[in-house]
Amino acid sequence: MNQEFTRLRTLNPAHQFTILLSATRRGARLARLLTREQLRSWGTPFEDGEQIVAELANNAVLHGHVPGRSFRLVLTLAATDTLRIEVTDARAEELPREAGLPVADAESGRGLFLVEAYADRWGTEPGPAPCKTVWAEIDAVAAGRGT
């Protein structure tokens, strides 16, 4: 896992979108669909960001779910054309494992491998307790690098 942190939070973002979603399969699907439409409305390519959100939201539902708690999706497009995706769930103790390709016949376990393939950087941040945030960044997204 790439633990480099960028300074997107201190930059003045060109665009930002935040939403709380139910920690259900329907909420994960909605996160993906909302990401596609939000990035499209900003005039940026959406395919890579949509795929990353699909994987991170699915992980939040499968591994970060606490009954009665939602997960948060934040999309930030910085003036530098870097897209930062953050998914915050309610299980700080359930940290993602290293991204790796699972055995060929495994039915799951490819999500973070895909995130690593699509993102330029990704990692986790603790808090606020009892939460954690899994984030990913794509550089030069508005220039069409990731399509």
Score class of each variant (00 low, 15 high):
112 L>G: 12
10 T>N: 15
70 S>K: 15
116 E>T: 00
35 T>W: 06
63 H>F: 14
25 R>T: 12
71 F>E: 04
33 L>F: 13
27 G>V: 00
122 W>L: 08
85 I>L: 12
15 H>G: 01
105 D>Y: 04
27 G>N: 00
107 E>H: 10
113 F>R: 03
79 A>Q: 12
26 R>Y: 15
73 L>K: 07
84 R>G: 02
48 D>A: 13
77 L>V: 02
100 G>V: 07
74 V>T: 11
52 I>S: 03
11 L>F: 13
88 T>A: 14
33 L>S: 11
58 N>Q: 11
28 A>D: 05
54 A>Y: 05
118 Y>C: 06
37 E>Q: 07
13 P>H: 04
12 N>A: 10
103 V>N: 09
96 P>L: 11
73 L>Q: 09
49 G>A: 12
89 D>E: 13
51 Q>D: 11
16 Q>E: 14
70 S>A: 14
22 S>M: 03
89 D>T: 01
109 G>Q: 09
98 E>M: 04
114 L>V: 11
41 S>E: 08
46 F>D: 11
110 R>I: 00
74 V>C: 10
72 R>G: 07
104 A>V: 04
116 E>C: 04
82 T>D: 04
105 D>T: 06
110 R>V: 00
86 E>M: 12
18 T>K: 12
123 G>W: 05
91 R>L: 14
11 L>N: 09
111 G>I: 01
104 A>P: 12
73 L>G: 02
86 E>C: 07
118 Y>N: 09
72 R>K: 13
16 Q>T: 09
104 A>I: 03
100 G>E: 13
65 H>L: 08
32 R>D: 05
99 A>H: 14
40 R>G: 02
93 E>L: 07
55 E>I: 02
42 W>Y: 07
85 I>E: 01
99 A>W: 13
44 T>Q: 10
28 A>R: 02
114 L>Y: 03
12 N>Q: 12
78 A>M: 02
40 R>L: 05
83 L>H: 07
68 G>F: 10
69 R>M: 08
5 F>M: 04
67 P>L: 08
121 R>A: 12
92 A>N: 08
72 R>F: 08
34 L>D: 11
92 A>D: 07
95 L>Y: 01
18 T>R: 14
79 A>R: 15
4 E>F: 07
61 V>R: 08
8 L>N: 06
22 S>V: 01
14 A>I: 00
23 A>V: 01
115 V>P: 09
101 L>R: 04
104 A>T: 06
81 D>F: 06
49 G>V: 06
59 N>C: 03
55 E>Q: 11
114 L>W: 08
26 R>L: 15
73 L>R: 05
30 L>W: 10
